[in-house]
Design a protein around this nucleic acid. Structure first.
Lengths: 342, 342
DNA sequence: CGGCCTTGCCAAAGCGCTTTGGTAGCGCTA
DNA sequence: TAGCGCTACCAAAGCGCTTTGGCAAGGCCG
C-alpha cells in the first residue's frame, strides 16, 4: 500500500493524506482522524527512500568504525556504545548505519557518505590526538559528534567524553594514597586521544605524590586480556616488580589479575590493581554494592546515549555552535587494591 | 554535483551518462571513458536514495538486535560478528543498518522494515528454538539468514551455524576422556537455540562416557564473567564439588577460573575448565601456538562473513532455495584441563 | 450585498536517479 | 536506391513521497 493507493481508497488527494499523517494544520480534525485510521487499517507506512528523496533528510546516522589494517581488533566497548546511541535514534525515528572502513581510504569514505547522501550525521569513533577527520567533516558540512576528543585540534567541534585525565588522576591517586610507589601503567594505544589523556592523568598523580615515572613500567597496546597477562607476568618477574597496576580496561585488568595469581601472589594484598571500567553489560565489575576491581567507572552506554542526543540536536538546528559534554565517572573501591607492603 | 549537472557538463543526456557509469553496452567506449573521467574529476557519486527509489533496491542489509526488556546484556560477540558481515557488505556496495528493537514489538518492526523498504534483507540474531521470526519473514518475502538455527522449525530456511551439538560433545568428551565424572555445565540461556544444542551435546557426551547428568551442576544464564565466578564459587563450596567445568563462553570461563583460583585450587590440575571460544578479537585465547583454555574454537567473525555472503546471494537470486552452512570448529587443548585426580 | 479572510482541500512540480521506448545516422545487402 | 539492422544516443516516464501554489466554499465585515 503506497500513498497513491491509500488516497484513492479514501477519495482524497495525496497531498491531503500526506499532510494529515504528518500533522500539518491544513487538514480538518475529522479528515485527519479518518486518514489516520485508514493508515492503521491498511498498515500504511511511507517509503523511507521516497520520503528521504523528497525531504532531503536521510533519517539515518552513520557510525564509521575505522578498521586498522594491521591490528584487527574490534573495540569491545562497541556493542554497548552503539546500544546507547541506538536507543536515542529509535526514539526519534532515525536509523543507524554502520560502516567498517579500512583507515587507508577513510577520507574518501566520508566524502562519499556526504555526496551519496545516505546519512544526516555521523559519529566519529576512536579519535587520535590530531584527528584529520574533524577538519574534513567541518569542510563537508556534515553534522558530527566525536566520541572522545582530539587534544591537538584547536577549532571547536562537538564531542562527548569522559574526563580521562581526572579519571586517571583519581585512579592513580587512589593507589599512591595507599602508599604504592612503583605503579605500572597498562594503557591503550597512545596515539589515540583517550589513552594519551589517561597517561597524562597517571603522570599528574605520580608528580602530585612526589614520585617519578619509570618508563619501563608504562605500556601502551591493544587492550586485550593476554596483553595484561603477558606483560604483567613479565613485570612481576623483574627484580623490583611494581606493587600496583593502573590499567585502562577491565579486560586487560582480568589478564593482569591472572598474572598476579599465577605468580602466587594475592591481588589486593601483595599487589594492587585499579582499572578503568566502561561498565560493559557482559562484563560487570562485581555488583554495584560489592565491586571487585578498584578504579573508576563510567558508563559507555550512557556516553552513547549522550552522543546520539547531541548529534540529533545538531542536525535539527543547523548552524548551531558545537556542543560538548562530559560523562561523569566515579571512583570505585573494590577488593583489588590495598595498602602497599613496602 | 548530480547527474543532471554532470550530463550538462558533458553535453550528453542523463540516460547516456547513467548507462555509461553503470556499464550498459549501449554506449561507445570512447564516450564511456569520457564520462568516467568526468565523474572522477567532479567526484560524482549517484545519490543513494534516488537510486534506490528508482531501482527498488535499498542496497542495505538490516541487522535486528533484540533488546530484551529485562536482561539488558549486549551480546559480546556482536562486534566481531558484525565486522565479519560488514566486510562482505562493503565489498558488494551494501550498507549495514543496525536496529535495536525491544523484543515486545519485534514483529511489527520486521513488518515495517519491509513496508518502509529500507533494507533488502536482514540477519536474524539470537534465534530461539521455535523462533516466530522465521515464519514471519517467510510471509513477508524478505530475504534473511539466521545466525544460528531454530531446532523446532521444520520448514527450510537459510542459516549459518556452528555444530553446537558436536562441539559440546567434543568439549565434554575431552573432559570425560581425562577421567572427569562430575562435570558442571555453565550454559547460556537455554531458550536460545545455541544453548539448547550445547546442552544436548554435553548430555550426549556424558551418556557416551556412561555418566549421569546432575541437574544441580547444570546452569543456564547470561554469560557474564560474574555469573561464572559466583556460580563456580558456590559449586566449589559443595561437599562434592565438580572436578571439571564445561563453559559456553570464554568470558564466563574467566569468571570460573577466578573462582577456582580464589578457592586456592589450581586450574588444569585440581579443576579442569573447558570452554567454547568465539575467537573474539579482544579476547584471544592465548596464542594460536599456545592456547590457554582447553575447549572448542570457532570464529564468530568468520560466521559473520558467511552470513553476509549467503544473504547477498539470496538477494541476488530471488526465489532461490534456502541455503545453509556449518562453520567449522576445532578442539583446542590448552593448560586449563588435565587428568581428573581421584 | 460585495469584498475579504479562513478553512480545507487539490493538481502538479520536484527530489535524483533508472529505464522504457524511441530515433537519427550509418553501412550493408538485394 | 529502397530497405534493413546496427550503433549510439535522447526525451520522457516513473519510483513514492513532500511541498508549492493554487482555488472553491463559507463566514464575516462594513
Amino acid at each position: 500500500m503506497n500513498l497513491k493507493q491509500l488516497s484513492e481508497q479514501l477519495g482524497l488527494s495525496q497531498t491531503t493524506v500526506s499532510r494529515a499523517l504528518n500533522g500539518y494544520p491544513e487538514v480538518s480534525e475529522k479528515t485527519r482522524e479518518r486518514v489516520r485510521q485508514a493508515a492503521l487499517d491498511f498498515n500504511y507506512k511511507p517509503n523511507t527512500r521516497a520520503r528521504s528523496l523528497a525531504t532531503g533528510r536521510a533519517m539515518a546516522i552513520g557510525h564509521v568504525i575505522p578498521v586498522s589494517t594491521q591490528q584487527e581488533m574490534v573495540n569491545p566497548i562497541f556493542g554497548d556504545f552503539v546500544t546507547g546511541a541506538g536507543e536515542v535514534y529509535s526514539e526519534h525515528g532515525y536509523d543507524m548505519m554502520l560502516s567498517l572502513v579500512p583507515d587507508s581510504d577513510e577520507e574518501s569514505f566520508y566524502r562519499d557518505l556526504k555526496i551519496k547522501g545516505n546519512v544526516d550525521g555521523i559519529v566519529v569513533h576512536s579519535p587520535s590526538m590530531d584527528d584529520t577527520r574533524i577538519a574534513l567533516l567541518n569542510e563537508l558540512q556534515l553534522p558530527y559528534v566525536v566520541h572522545g576528543r582530539a587534544s591537538a585540534i584547536e577549532a571547536p567541534y562537538s564531542w562527548v567524553d569522559v574526563a580521562n585525565v581526572r579519571a586517571f588522576e583519581a585512579l592513580t591517586g587512589h593507589l599512591t594514597g595507599l602508599g604504592h610507589r612503583r605503579i605500572a601503567l597498562f594503557n591503550g594505544i597512545e596515539s589515540l586521544d583517550f589513552a594519551h589523556r589517561r597517561r597524562t592523568g597517571f603522570l599528574n598523580a605520580l608528580t602530585e605524590a612526589g614520585l617519578e615515572a619509570d618508563p619501563e613500567l608504562m605500556l601502551s597496546w591493544d587492550m586485550t586480556e593476554s596483553y595484561g597477562f603477558d606483560e604483567a607476568s613479565r613485570m612481576l618477574a623483574r627484580s623490583e616488580p611494581p606493587t600496583a597496576f593502573a590499567v585502562s580496561s577491565l579486560i586487560t585488568a582480568l589478564g593482569v589479575r591472572r598474572a598476579v595469581e599465577q605468580a602466587r601472589l594475592t591481588v589486593g594484598r601483595d599487589v594492587s590493581v585499579a582499572t578503568f571500567d566502561d561498565d560493559l553489560s557482559y562484563l560487570r565489575n562485581g555488583t554495584p554494592e560489592a565491586p571487585v576491581f578498584s578504579g573508576v567507572r563510567s558508563s559507555v552506554r550512557e556516553a552513547g546515549r549522550r552522543v546520539g542526543a547531541i548529534l540529533l540536536s545538531q542536525i535539527s538546528t543547523p548552524g548551531a555552535p558545537p556542543a560538548s559534554e562530559m560523562i561523569p565517572f566515579e571512583l570505585v573501591v573494590g577488593t583489588t587494591s590495598g595498602p602497599a607492603r613496602i
